[in-house]
């Protein structure tokens, strides 16, 4: 159980960093386009992390169960 827990914690840390990034983009970047892109990319990154590591989307196309 240790390995998946480690993965979880690392993902959580990246999520925290991305959330802060997003927030800083919103508060400290003046240029509309850069701010919008920064926020969007952070959000997409967070979504991908959750969908891949937390929701295990890869299990959909894995033929047999392995846990």
């Amino acid at each position: 159980m240790r390995k998946p827990m480690q993965t979880g914690l690392i993902v959580a840390a990246i999520l925290a960093v991305l959330t802060i990034t997003e927030y800083l983009f919103a508060t400290h970047v003046g240029d509309d386009l850069v701010r919008f892109l920064g926020i969007t990319v952070s959000a997409l990154g967070k979504a991908v992390l959750i969908i891949y590591y937390f929701m295990h989307i890869y299990r959909l196309w894995r033929p047999q169960e392995a846990h």
């Binding site: 983009f25 919103a26 926020i39 959000a43 967070k46 979504a47 959750i50 969908i51």
Partner: peptide, 13 residues
């Protein structure tokens, strides 16, 4: 995941 998009759309734009 939904909130990941809703939060910036509502609070950060």
């Amino acid at each position: 995941v939904v909130w990941v998009f809703y939060y910036p759309a509502l609070y950060l734009t």
